[in-house]
Simulated scan of single mutants.
Amino acid sequence: MEPENHELLLPLVDEENICLPLPINVVSKYWNVQLPMVEAQEIAKNYSGYSGSILIEGIELAERHGLTCKIIHSSLSELKKIIDVGIPPIVILPGIPEITQHASVITGYDIEEKSILHYIQKGNKEGEQQEGAIPEEIFDKQWAEEGRLLIILTTSDILSSINLESNDNESNRLCLISERYQIQNNFAKAGELLKKAIELNPNNSTALHLYGSLLNSQKSSECTQFYEKCLKSNPNSYLSYNGLGNFYLKSNKFEKAEENYTKAIEINPNRSAKIYKNRAYIREKQNNISGAKEDLKNYLKYYPRAPDRGIIEQAIREL
């Protein structure tokens, strides 16, 4: 008996723009929808100087050209069902060190190897699509840090034919729209949308974290209650523990800051280098010299090209 095929063949695409992120472009082309780069470039003029991807702009561009989107909190079993229907889902995962998050297209899964297959931008010499395999357990652990957020981009008839576990699309969409307003420095509007997202779904860990972060950036102590609510909904939220650590560090509450940084590191020890430098500062203040030295070494381990590498190496020698 031949093994079941749980892989989707996606087109090889290398065009992207801050308003047309690669995952949106790949999935759109999979559905034979050619999104105009010229239109994306025109929209990008509204974000002069911004270097990240603006997912909501890419989603809205795809919707203007005939596709339909839903943004949900999902599960590993639902992810597989979506793939088996023939839909390549887009997931939000932790970014590489010092990048908060990134979107990745899932091309399939391997039952025998117990792995999840990711789309990789560059193909081989024959121009074939390449896939990166991540063990299921590791993938799900990383995905859980972002509340297992998933984007379904497809045709309206296909989307209406599938039953989804959650119905928090509207709340999640407001989160992405709020991020656009934050990029534009319209923090009042961003906050208004996040409050509405929380009203629609009080347990939306994404909305709770984003609102906590917005309040944290405004130096409001109210941020802690939203981070805590996020952690009740999603105990794996690395970013909320890190946010609490940052708030308590700024407030000179070193014990609480160290506690939250440590919890974040326990969830994902290699997600961020900066968290080790912050904890090193706290540990030195608390006279934990060996702990501070270890953290500074980890900072350089995870950020070998750190611009302050010389200063940190000197600090390690002097501790």
Score class of each variant (00 low, 15 high):
residue 98 E to A: 05
residue 62 A to C: 06
residue 122 K to V: 14
residue 91 V to L: 10
residue 108 G to M: 06
residue 128 E to F: 12
residue 139 F to N: 00
residue 62 A to G: 02
residue 70 K to F: 09
residue 113 E to G: 08
residue 86 G to P: 04
residue 98 E to M: 10
residue 111 I to Q: 12
residue 75 S to F: 09
residue 104 S to M: 13
residue 83 I to H: 02
residue 120 I to P: 00
residue 72 I to T: 04
residue 85 V to E: 11
residue 119 Y to H: 00
residue 55 L to K: 03
residue 55 L to F: 03
residue 93 L to K: 11
residue 97 P to L: 12
residue 139 F to K: 06
residue 135 P to G: 10
residue 53 S to Y: 15
residue 106 I to H: 06
residue 58 G to V: 08
residue 66 G to S: 05
residue 60 E to A: 05
residue 127 G to L: 10
residue 64 R to Y: 08
residue 60 E to H: 11
residue 138 I to W: 00
residue 72 I to W: 02
residue 75 S to P: 10
residue 84 D to K: 09
residue 100 T to Y: 10
residue 60 E to N: 13
residue 54 I to Q: 01
residue 62 A to F: 05
residue 116 I to Y: 04
residue 123 G to F: 04
residue 100 T to C: 00
residue 98 E to D: 08
residue 83 I to A: 00
residue 94 P to T: 07
residue 137 E to M: 12
residue 109 Y to V: 12
residue 62 A to L: 04
residue 119 Y to D: 01
residue 128 E to D: 14
residue 121 Q to K: 15
residue 72 I to S: 01
residue 52 G to C: 07
residue 74 S to W: 07
residue 115 S to N: 01
residue 139 F to C: 06
residue 86 G to V: 11
residue 119 Y to F: 11
residue 64 R to I: 08
residue 105 V to R: 01
residue 67 L to M: 14
residue 120 I to W: 01
residue 66 G to V: 10
residue 68 T to A: 14
residue 129 Q to C: 07
residue 136 E to F: 11
residue 79 L to V: 13
residue 92 I to S: 11
residue 126 E to Q: 14
residue 63 E to L: 07
residue 141 K to S: 14
residue 67 L to N: 08
residue 119 Y to C: 05
residue 60 E to V: 05
residue 140 D to E: 15
residue 61 L to C: 10
residue 134 I to E: 08
residue 83 I to Y: 05
residue 100 T to S: 11
residue 107 T to C: 09
residue 78 E to A: 09
residue 95 G to A: 06
residue 86 G to F: 12
residue 77 S to R: 13
residue 134 I to N: 06
residue 110 D to E: 14
residue 142 Q to D: 13
residue 75 S to A: 10
residue 114 K to M: 11
residue 86 G to I: 09
residue 102 H to W: 12
residue 121 Q to W: 01
